[in-house]
Simulated scan of single mutants.
Amino acid sequence: MKQFMLGTAIAFAFGAAHAADIVDTAKSAGSFNTLIAAVQAAGLADTLKGPGPFTVFAPTDEAFASIPKEKLDALLKDKAALTKVLTYHVVPGKVMAADVKAGNVKTVEGSPLSVSMKGGKVGVNNANVVKTDVVADNGVIHVIDKVVMPK
Rank of each mutant, 00 (worst) to 15 (best):
A9V: 10
F14P: 03
F14D: 11
A16H: 03
A17G: 04
A17Y: 09
A19Q: 12
A20M: 08
D21G: 12
D24L: 07
T25L: 09
A26P: 05
K27D: 00
K27Y: 00
S28D: 07
G30Y: 05
G30R: 08
T34F: 03
L35Q: 09
L35K: 05
I36S: 08
A37F: 06
A38C: 03
Q40C: 00
Q40S: 06
A41P: 02
G43I: 01
A45R: 03
D46Y: 03
D46G: 13
D46Q: 10
K49A: 14
G52I: 06
F54C: 00
F54N: 00
V56M: 10
A58L: 05
A58W: 04
P59H: 03
P59L: 04
P59V: 04
P68A: 15
K71C: 01
L76A: 06
K77F: 10
K79W: 13
A80H: 07
V85G: 13
T87D: 15
Y88F: 15
H89F: 12
H89C: 11
V90E: 10
K94C: 12
V95W: 13
G103T: 14
N104S: 15
V105K: 10
V105Y: 06
V105D: 06
G110N: 11
S111G: 13
S111N: 15
S111A: 14
P112L: 02
P112K: 03
S114N: 07
S114W: 00
V115R: 05
M117A: 08
M117I: 12
K118V: 15
G119E: 07
V122Y: 00
V122K: 01
V122Q: 00
N126V: 03
N126Y: 00
A127K: 02
N128G: 11
V130Q: 04
K131Y: 02
K131H: 03
K131L: 09
K131W: 01
D133M: 01
A136Q: 05
G139R: 06
V140F: 09
